[in-house]
């Protein structure tokens, strides 16, 4: 039913429209929905991510992040709607599969294979395999090629899995909780080597986590999924610029709330702290209020506490 029209959205959370020609769309979901045995894991997700971004995909446990990412990777098929990677549905075509790399939650590898055999696996199954890149990465990480994968530490296994995903030379790298079950040092190392790979290959990356702080420094795009629905999708800088923490007298809070959307409202006695979404042109020139910026973490938390609030770019409907 949506086959003959495309819903396209660009730009940041404040609703500005970036011209479509500026960059290709890496990931586009249109009314994407997935149902498992009667329960909807994902409902009506519509979003798009421009190419070249590093996307922090956050949401509480059970929000449907894994389902969404598995749909993107083509491991499962949507119940409704569609998801496209670089304009093409992933799934059962080798060319489409070659553009996306997927790192599943438990970072599955063949435990009985040596690291070298895992590279051979990647080499045999991917026409675009970059063996030199893989070997160089593993050498830098001091991971012995002749060691069995099952004998490596959790952090090393994650690095091998990431290496295989990167050496595939994908245009989109999808990672489902790559930092889960890793110690802080390993988390740091994984993020650092991921960022090095991104800088080198210009690929688009989507990585999910339920810990926002893991991703704040690395990502320039934020996607928040809550209860199976997209709550935020936008460029991090624009999102931060569009939200303000306002502090002022509690008796005036309702007046402010009437003028702009309040994401979080905490009042204590005569003092009110409002996290508001300030659209373009809606600024507050009242000396009784002081405005300060918000951190990404505060922003995400505020939205997650209010599941019915969304900050999505305004969709432009192009009917053809």
């Amino acid at each position: 039913m949506t086959a003959d029209r495309t819903v396209r959205m660009f730009g940041g959370g404040c609703g500005e429209l970036t011209p479509p020609a500026q960059s290709a769309t890496a990931l586009e979901a249109v009314r994407l929905a997935k149902r498992y045995r009667g329960t909807w894991a994902l409902r009506d997700c519509t979003l798009s991510v421009p190419a070249g971004r590093v996307v922090a995909f956050v949401g509480p446990n059970g929000a449907g992040k894994s389902t969404f990412l598995r749909l993107v990777a083509g491991l499962i098929a949507p119940t409704r709607g569609s998801v496209r990677v670089f304009g093409e549905p992933v799934g059962q075509r080798a060319e489409a599969l070659a553009r996306v790399a997927f790192l599943a939650q438990d970072k599955p590898l063949y435990d009985g294979f040596t690291v070298a055999e895992m590279l051979r696996f990647g080499h045999h199954l991917n026409p675009g395999w970059d063996d030199a890149l893989a070997r160089q990465r593993l050498a830098e990480l001091d991971i012995p090629l002749n060691r069995k994968v099952g004998k490596l530490s959790g952090g090393q296994q994650a690095q091998v899995a990431l290496t295989i995903a990167v050496a595939k030379r994908p245009d989109l790298l999808v990672m489902d909780g790559p930092l889960a079950n890793l110690d802080p040092v390993a988390r740091h190392d994984i993020m650092r080597s991921l960022m090095a790979a991104v800088a080198e290959t210009q690929m688009t990356v989507v990585l999910s986590s339920h810990v926002v702080s893991d991703l704040t420094n690395a990502c320039d795009w934020l996607m928040v999924l809550n209860r199976g629905q997209v709550q935020i999708s936008g460029e991090v800088d624009e999102l931060l610029a569009a939200h303000r923490m306002l502090s002022g007298p509690a008796e005036l809070a309702d007046e402010v709330a009437a003028r702009m959307p309040v994401i979080n409202d905490s009042r204590s006695g005569r003092q009110a702290d409002l996290l508001v979404h300030t659209g373009p042109g809606t600024s507050l020139h009242d000396p009784r209020w002081s405005a300060s910026g918000v951190s990404l973490e505060e922003l995400v938390l505020a939205y997650l506490r209010r599941p019915d609030t969304t900050s999505l770019p305004r969709p432009t409907l192009t009917t053809t």
Binding site: R93, A104, Y110
Partner: peptide
């Protein structure tokens, strides 16, 4: 072992 998620997301169709 969940390894089908690894193998089925390489550039070879699962078929």
């Amino acid at each position: 072992h969940g390894t089908h998620q690894l193998t089925w997301t390489q550039s070879v169709t699962r078929r």
